[in-house]
Amino acid sequence: MTVQHHIPDETLLSYAAGDLDDATSLVVAVHLALCPACREAIDVASDIGGMMLEDLAPVAMSGDALAHVLARTETAAAGERPVPMTTSQSSSPAASFVFPEPLRSRIGGDLDNVKWRRIGPGVQQFVLPCADGASQARLLKIAGGQGVPEHGHTGEEFTLVLAGGFSDGSLAFARGDVEWADPDVVHRPVADDGDGCVCLAVTSGPLQFFDIIGKIAQRVIGI
């Protein structure tokens, strides 16, 4: 099925420019793996970067720079090439990975390998390691019919569906779809009945819960 809800254009542009923090880059990259339309958009945004690079006034390289690089091409070790991470540590057959790259590499496996931690009724999470503290990335596994308590945001929130789906008001989100929320949005996503939902959620500021249960949950689980 085609992705219906995309990463906002201005975020795609910033991904291509290299401005996004690690966690936000991760959710964009995983969406790209699932969304050919946004890959096209990224190719165009990268062309802007290429054009700007082309137009820069050149700055002289150090005198021996070329010789250095040529010397190193001689020793171009095949071992320095990136080794694609594929089936390692995962029991899934290749074609049925739930997590696309670069998520599998980050976790060191697929859905079966996640060490979930229960954080509330019907809700489990796994906090992903990230290179900077600007945003937080976590996997959420929400049981069918369960919701995240109604909340607002102090920053941006991206929620990417990896398995199952959820709805928020009248909008439905399935694999590959991203729900984007900023500080003006107050919402209450609910996982679809049945198998529920596995999501990658990235938040750039603490969530703000409006009811007492949410507030307690926040204190206990540190969302």
Binding site: A17, G18, D22, S25, L26, V28, A29, V30, L32, A33, L34, C35, P36, R39, G49, P84, M85, T86, A94, A95, F97, V98, F99, P100, E101, P102, R104, R106, P129, C130, A131, D132, G176
Partner: peptide, 26 residues
């Protein structure tokens, strides 16, 4: 761009893998 980011971060920049079997093809 990626080399610059990687020079300042401990984890390399998240990039899609065009050969990933989980990639939804064009």
């Amino acid at each position: 761009r990626n080399l610059r980011i990687d020079a300042f971060r401990k984890i390399s920049r998240p990039e899609l893998d065009p050969n990933d079997p989980a990639l939804v093809p064009d």
